[in-house]
Write a protein that binds this DNA or RNA. Structure first.
Length: 328
DNA sequence: GGCCCTCTTTAGGGCCTT
């Protein structure tokens, strides 16, 4: 089994990707707030509001450096950003001050929350290869995960013994001989290892987010079926995001030339070179990690945005499926 | 199978995943 399960050890090509992905959420986060207006208090004693000066900080330009400074320390906001406008407390009526105070609290809280939330979420891009499309009749034959935080052991990939003939070798290049042999783990043996691996990567008190392309319709239901077949349940705290939803949003953007929502079309759209053999799990994971970066940048999405607006759990998927079946 | 779009919603076709 050990021969087949592979954890990364900072091999050069992967390391390059991880270095890139390790910091890109922060860049996305910076981008998302760059057009915000931030109000902060400057000067005076904190107990004497009459001496305080309300300063409006516009972050609308050149965020590459500025945004990083903002995120690195809220206290640095006033020092790093040139004033656009400033006015004293005494020039404002009470209502205006209250509104500004609310804005200040809200925006600074949001920045802090986004930053903290991003740090607490372990994001895995993942992909599976299977013997076919039917989750009932087909089996997983390869799984790959990439923890976007990077670092040692940030990738996990393994072939899986399906105990059946592989009829679609022409798609992924995985033959019956490659997987139906000793040393290749079966799903029931692999699941506990996978759960432990994910748990090990989880930050204290943090969340787990899996991201897959067409995951809602294919990867996640397939995983659910395989877990059930092996008498396991997908942990309740695992959340999933389907990048197909993001691709649809990209297509709606005015002027978008994206004509298809397939992973290959997205790769070409963003000018990402082919990385390894398409339809091998880790190769597709590497591509999706880069595509995800581009899409979230274009849609100005933060990690909290993904969790709030796009994430779903396995149980939610199961319940929705049941409701739809009952309504037919 | 789920989702979206439309010549739709009491439906059907196409895309996407292997």
């Amino acid at each position: 089994m050990r021969a087949a399960v592979c954890f990364s050890h900072l091999q050069l090509p992967r390391c390059q990707i991880h270095t890139f992905t390790g910091s890109w959420w922060e860049k996305i986060h910076n981008f998302s707030i760059k057009s915000s207006t931030i109000y902060s208090l400057q000067g005076g004693n904190n107990n004497n509001t009459n001496n305080k000066r309300w300063t409006q900080k516009s972050l609308s330009t050149n965020t590459e450096g500025i945004g990083k400074n903002i995120l690195s320390s809220k206290r640095n906001i006033a020092q790093q950003i040139p004033d656009v406008t400033s006015f004293t407390h005494s020039n404002l009526n009470t209502t205006r001050v209250e509104i500004n105070e609310c804005k200040s609290i809200h925006l600074e809280q949001k920045i802090t929350e986004n930053k903290d939330a991003s740090k607490l979420v372990t994001i895995f891009v993942f992909d599976i290869e299977t013997t076919g499309f039917s989750r009932e009749n087909e089996r997983i034959i390869e799984i790959a995960l990439q923890d976007l935080s990077g670092g040692v052991n940030s990738t996990f990939e393994t072939l899986v013994n399906p105990d059946k003939f592989v009829p679609n070798q022409q798609i992924h290049g995985i033959s019956t001989y490659m997987v139906n042999k000793p040393g290749v783990p079966r799903m029931k043996d692999l699941i506990p290892i996978l759960i432990d691996y994910v748990k090990d990567r989880q930050k204290p008190g943090g969340q787990i987010l899996f991201i897959a392309h067409n995951g809602k319709a294919f990867d996640v239901p397939f995983l659910i079926n395989e877990f059930n077949r092996c008498s396991f349940e997908i942990p309740l705290y695992w959340k999933f995001v389907d990048t197909m939803s993001l691709a649809r949003e990209i297509m709606k953007v005015e002027g978008s030339k994206l004509s298809s929502k397939s992973l290959q079309a997205l790769r070409e759209y963003y000018g990402i070179p082919v990385i390894g053999k398409a339809h091998r799990a880790m190769a597709d994971v590497n591509v999706l990690a880069l595509v995800l970066q581009k899409m979230t940048r274009d849609l100005k999405l933060t990690v909290p945005d993904l969790l709030e607006n796009y994430a779903f759990t396995a149980s939610e998927l199961i319940n929705n499926s049941k409701k739809k079946k009952n309504s037919r």
